[in-house]
Design a binder for these strands. Sequence first.
DNA 1: CAATAATATGCGAATATTATAATATTCATC
DNA 2: GATGAATATTATAATATTCGCATATTATTG
Lengths: 113, 113
Amino acid sequence: MQDSLRRFKADIFQALAHPTRIAILELLSKGELSAGVLIEKLGMEQANVSQHLAVLRAKQLVSNRKAGNQVFYSVRDRILIEVLSLMRTYFHAHLKESLTMLDEMESPLETAR
Amino acid sequence: MQDSLRRFKADIFQALAHPTRIAILELLSKGELSAGVLIEKLGMEQANVSQHLAVLRAKQLVSNRKAGNQVFYSVRDRILIEVLSLMRTYFHAHLKESLTMLDEMESPLETAR
DNA sequence: CAATAATATGCGAATATTATAATATTCATC
DNA sequence: GATGAATATTATAATATTCGCATATTATTG
């Protein structure tokens, strides 16, 4: 039981473990948005966004409401937004090391400014 | 920039996205433990645990202190423990649906009791 | 009911993650 | 410095994720 509980938590973290899905949740943190608006704001392929939405749906992190032609998404539980907010705090607390890390990992130019 | 920040967050969630690593962090939430004790409490292969510890180290979620023969691990930032605690709340809030989900996904017998 | 707009799904290729087994490193003690 | 205990690393095979593309579904409008 202990273990399947952890598997459940891990699954949710897994769902959060993609930049696009984090972006989606952050965009939704102020209220519901249609898939179309999300796609536009993200500036990504429709199918790709739709797939990420499917992941979030599968793990029940978002709920969706169909209104005619469109589908509106919203964050299912505010706790997730709190978690993301905590992560922001975490990031700021470790900003220096994080930048160094990112620096070493990827494009050094952007982070250097 | 916005994007690399999200990649950073995603990376951390990725590190959290494994039952064993969640178990490790939960075991460490009360204070530091040696790798040996962790291995014993987890009841898993030494190499496997060590690999998961390496992931947590790489993402800087834990720090380690070498004392003679042993290596003691601890959670680097209490915020992570808060995050895990929030997730616990989240889990309890969604217990029913979660069980149904797990039920449909895997062994139906265990969860049915 | 044909055409179009909004969204979802299926599939294949590229890539990443995981567990296991084998081996290496590091430190303490004799 | 050989031996043993504690921990880490490497290689590999199995599995899972991700993206792009093509196609399907559903609702609206003419």
